[in-house]
Simulated assay, not measured.
Amino acid sequence: MPSDFERKTTHFGYREVPKNEKAALVAEVFRSVAPKYDLMNDLMSLGMHRLWKRFAIEQAALRPGDQVLDVASGTGDLAKALARVVGSKGRVVMTDINEAMLQVGRERLEDAGVMGNIDFIQADAENLPFVDHYFDCVTIAFGLRNVTDKVTAMKSMHRVLKPGGKLLILEFSHPQTPLLNKLYDLYSFNIIPRLGALVTNDRDSYQYLVESIRMHPNQDALKAMMHEAGFEDVEYYNLCDGIVAVHKGYKY
Results as ranks from 00 to 15, higher is better:
Met94Arg: 09
Phe130Pro: 06
Glu58Gln: 13
Ala224Tyr: 00
Arg63Trp: 04
Leu209Ile: 15
Val138Ala: 11
Ile121Cys: 01
Val26Thr: 06
Val151Thr: 14
Val114Asn: 01
Gln176Pro: 01
Met154Gly: 07
Ile243Met: 10
His227Trp: 01
Tyr14Met: 14
Val92Gln: 02
Pro175Asp: 07
Phe231Ile: 07
Ser188Pro: 04
Gln103Thr: 14
Val114His: 01
Asn201Lys: 11
Asn190Thr: 06
Thr152Trp: 04
Arg106His: 08
Gly90Phe: 04
Cys240Glu: 08
Tyr208Val: 05
Asn20Lys: 13
Asp77Phe: 06
Met94Asp: 03
Pro64Thr: 07
Leu168Trp: 06
Gly249Met: 01
Gln219Glu: 12
Tyr250Glu: 00
Met157Pro: 02
Lys223Gly: 05
His247Val: 08
His11Ser: 15
Asn41Pro: 01
Pro2Phe: 10
Pro217Tyr: 02
Asn20Gln: 14
Thr95Asp: 07
Lys155Trp: 07
Phe12Met: 10
Ile243Val: 15
Lys223Gln: 11
Asp66His: 13
Tyr14Ala: 11
Asn181Cys: 02
Leu51Arg: 13
Glu228Asp: 12
Gly242Tyr: 02
Gln103Glu: 15
Asn238Ser: 14
Lys19Trp: 09
Gly165Tyr: 03
Ile243Arg: 03
Leu82Val: 11
Val147Ile: 15
Asn117Pro: 05
Gln122Tyr: 00
Arg159Leu: 09
Asp220Lys: 13
Leu167Thr: 02
